[in-house]
Write a protein that binds this DNA or RNA. Sequence first.
DNA 1: GCCCTCTTGCGAACACTGTACGCACGATGC
DNA 2: GCATCGTGCGTACAGTGTTCGCAAGAGGGC
Lengths: 238, 238
Amino acid sequence: MRYGGRMTSDIPSVWARPRRGREQPALSREQIVAEAVKLLDSDGLEALSMRNLGKRLGAGATSLYRHVASKEELIEFAIDEVYGEVGESSPDAEWRAGLIISARSVREMIKRHPWVAAVLGQIGLSYLGPNVMRLSNHMLGLLEKAGFSPGAAEKALSVLLAYVIGAGVGEAAWLTSLARSGLTEEEWTERLKPVTLAAAAPYPRLVAAFTAAQENSDQDTFDYGLEAMLDGLAARRP
Amino acid sequence: MRYGGRMTSDIPSVWARPRRGREQPALSREQIVAEAVKLLDSDGLEALSMRNLGKRLGAGATSLYRHVASKEELIEFAIDEVYGEVGESSPDAEWRAGLIISARSVREMIKRHPWVAAVLGQIGLSYLGPNVMRLSNHMLGLLEKAGFSPGAAEKALSVLLAYVIGAGVGEAAWLTSLARSGLTEEEWTERLKPVTLAAAAPYPRLVAAFTAAQENSDQDTFDYGLEAMLDGLAARRP
DNA sequence: GCCCTCTTGCGAACACTGTACGCACGATGC
DNA sequence: GCATCGTGCGTACAGTGTTCGCAAGAGGGC
């Protein structure tokens, strides 16, 4: 006996008939994308399957295809969705402070949604999404305010985003390995330390650097590189 | 009738018995990894399946598991394999010139193997591979030669690699979309132009910047950001 | 009331995936 | 000659993305 099937003539009662159709809110793309983001956040990239997602929405897997052309397209939507969380500085902020706010905000977003970093290299053309466009426009405005010509500002923006995304990829890889380990951050760090030192053993300089760098926090390192990059860019204004 | 099976008692002839065992070179991990890289390069990440790879090696899919614990481990090996292609400057090179050589060499490597960029965010702990260690050691040496303390050099290295990898992710995404389109680079660029401008249409500044930036070459943009980052780092030496 | 079209959900099916298991076989050590 | 080991692989299982066709409700025209 299977429950929840179509059962047109199974049991002749309204109460047995599943409520469907317009009686309750139907599936919508927004709803699907939002649930996909939730699933990706909690269970990671490999847990995102159409059947799985459908189950969460109380729908069949293939129903999703009415609102989304493919899983890849769904991921593209999800990427833009989380880009929507990235904050902007007030439009009259000083250029450098404004860029720092946006860059940090992208980093925070990636830390909340580590799967984006993993997926950005696989999905071409993710920069076309409306939220990415909005963010690009905002940061370009700040760069032009700093004195860059439109063409130079675009170049500076690519370079800045490359740094932010590269840092995000590194942190995402770490967070993914941490999540899969099932341990706390301290336990995982502790367990990894001897492995790292063993791998670095042939190179004494590497061992020394890793040991010395243990108290570098990720946030500090990110800001360090961000400031360095901004200094370099500032010096290149006409 | 199935050919290639075990057929112990099928046909009583030496010629029908498949030549196996030590008569011909057996599978080895090196061979498997090398073939995986070739497959990834030519057909992309989604074409890498154990059955597919086995076929290329004249072996069954499950045979590979004698030499590699899982597909994920295979990819980790493949990552380190391509890091092995990254060149080093001569050890007595000037620090800045040496770092530029390594950074460009990583970029070239990613352009030859775009799938690495897509996979770096998914595979935690890829930095443990011997070739990555060798590269890190080399670049750390250059940074220490520049005057950084071990701890600061490690920070500078993370930051530098973040930029290089972020740039690589962007280029890999582009190359992947290009390969999937099946078009030439010119055709694909031309076909994408109106789409990009349409997506940017709500933001006149974005349209202007994209238009002005059309002759920015990827190599120039990469070098621009690399020099900016190195300037910023150089200014931070003690 | 009726019919006709359009949209939406979905069960079944297809080709494929990663991988566990156990058997068969050649090579090797005693 | 015999036991043991390493290796290849056929089979099987649970799962994947996606296509197809059917069912059913919604809305429009009369």
